[in-house]
Amino acid sequence: MESVIRKWGNSPALRLPTTVLKEAGYQLEQKVDLIVSPGRIIIQPSKNIAYDLDTLIKGINAANMHEEISFGSPVGNEAL
């Protein structure tokens, strides 16, 4: 598929058709890494995913919560 790099504000931009995003398995607002080498730009999913603690905590429910796990008695200067 051919596309054209155009100006967007002060930066060059490449618009990706929705079909291209879907076929590659990408979503809007997804973080990506750019790998640049002479004559080539590769877009791949970012491995650095930021998690929001409040969102993660809201996802806890009776079905996915486990019981307390004991690791035994203190063996050093652990605070209990």
Rank of each mutant, 00 (worst) to 15 (best):
A62D: 15
N64S: 14
S37N: 08
K31M: 02
S37Q: 13
I60R: 11
G9R: 02
L28S: 08
R15I: 02
A63D: 15
Y26G: 01
E23M: 00
G39M: 09
V4D: 04
L14N: 13
G76W: 07
V32M: 12
E68W: 15
E78C: 07
T19W: 06
L21E: 02
S11I: 00
M1Y: 11
L14G: 06
I49G: 00
K47I: 03
I41L: 09
V32D: 05
N48G: 12
P74Y: 08
V32I: 11
E78D: 08
T19N: 04
K31D: 01
A13F: 12
L80G: 05
N61I: 01
L16W: 05
S73Q: 15
E78G: 13
E68T: 04
M65Q: 14
P12C: 07
I41A: 06
A24H: 10
S11P: 00
P17N: 05
V32Y: 11
I42F: 08
E29Y: 12
E67P: 03
G25T: 05
S46I: 10
Q44H: 07
N77I: 08
I5Y: 15
L34H: 03
P38T: 03
A63G: 12
G9P: 01
G59Y: 11
I60H: 09
R40D: 00
I69T: 08
M1H: 11
G9M: 01
P45S: 04
Q44N: 07
R40G: 00
I69A: 10
P74N: 13
Q30F: 14
L34N: 02
P17I: 00
N77V: 04
D33M: 04
I42R: 13
M65E: 08
A62R: 15
S73N: 13
V20F: 03
L16S: 04
K58I: 01
E2V: 03
E23N: 04
A13N: 04
S70F: 12
I43M: 11
K22M: 02
P12G: 11
E78H: 11
Q44K: 14
L16P: 04
